[in-house]
Write a protein that binds this DNA or RNA. Structure first.
Lengths: 181, 181
DNA sequence: CGGCGCATGTAACTTGTTACATGATTCC
DNA sequence: GGAATCATGTAACAAGTTACATGCGCCG
């Protein structure tokens, strides 16, 4: 069983979803700590269906183009719970920008400044999205028992993105002051 | 050309190294933003040597078990500089602990508390290593032009790990207060 | 009627991990 | 003499990306 399996099982635990919907949730809500491609998602859904952890939800079919909605089975829920108890295994982070920063003396300072400006822009956007999610969730905190947990995850994203932006500002100032010399 | 190529090229730009030494540097100094396995490293060294971006440094050979020290060539330096100018492409982060936190209501709170305790321990250790590096580098700041850049990378690690630890403390408190109810 | 968003899927490929094989040197 | 560390390497496998193929429905 791989990590992708559990993202899917976890999301289907909340509600039945199509592969496309799962992808969208991961791209938007999980953006700052997870990613999946269609080439990974669709084959995984097929396999989870074959082993009986999820099954097709016929009730939603009909309108438009063939659309497969999946729901989790009791076996799937059991597998998810087992995984939740197991120790956290992998934590992979690969930030190319830090690699470039590390070796940056080999290029003119304004090159790195450009990279940092883009980084800043991207993470300011992420932080904006997280702030909006926080506001939205706080309004419907009582509606579901897991909302408080999700807020903890959002808080992580806010802290980390804020740290990114603080670092970025300071590093840009450092490079600008060096450029003047 | 892949990302692994440039980590190697960048490190060899500072000094000639063996594959083993490269691995050790990545495992220790780059731990908080990069990782490589031997199965990736050795074949890449072979390939970079074949295309002429690095070459064997015979001067160090002799003692002990066959030990291949590589140094970068002018073609390698050119390739590295070109990559430094190119826009930052990938930024991959996959934090299993946030996935578990997101779905954590499906397991008893003490399970998540255990995961968090381990996370806290690991990142407190990382922060300690980073603080030691900072101290060391500040003592020899003038010795090499790139030390100031490396300090910027260390600063990133310190900020992010501090954010991790703050989040962890608050999240553990949240779970503990919930457990009491 | 063209483009966009919704929607599913696969094949070829690249990337990365794990387990294993091998063996020297150093330190206790 | 045995464990740890230094040291190199590969084969089998697992994971992940990209490009492509397909086509519906809606909006302007």
């Amino acid at each position: 069983m791989r990590q992708t399996d559990y993202v899917i099982l976890g999301l289907l635990c909340e509600a039945p979803l199509t592969g496309y919907q799962i992808k969208r949730i991961i791209d938007i809500r999980f953006k700052f700590f997870w990613n999946e491609s269609y080439g990974q998602l669709y084959p995984t859904l097929k396999r989870l269906n074959a082993v009986g952890f999820i099954e097709e939800d016929e009730t939603v079919a009909g309108q438009g183009r063939a659309q497969k909605t999946y729901r989790i089975t009791s076996y799937g829920i059991a597998a998810l719970k087992e995984w939740l108890r197991a120790p956290v295994e992998k934590e992979s982070v690969r930030l190319e920008i830090l690699l470039k920063m590390y070796f940056s003396r080999l290029a003119p300072p304004d090159v790195m400044l450009e990279h940092l400006a883009k980084f800043q822009e991207a993470h300011a956007r992420d932080l904006g999205v997280l702030n909006a999610f926080e506001k939205e969730l706080k309004g419907i905190l009582e509606q579901d028992a897991n909302h408080a947990d999700i807020l903890r995850v959002i808080d992580f994203g806010q802290r980390v993105n804020t740290a990114y932006l603080d670092w970025c500002r300071e590093t840009m100032a450092f490079l600008e002051s060096r450029e003047l010399q």
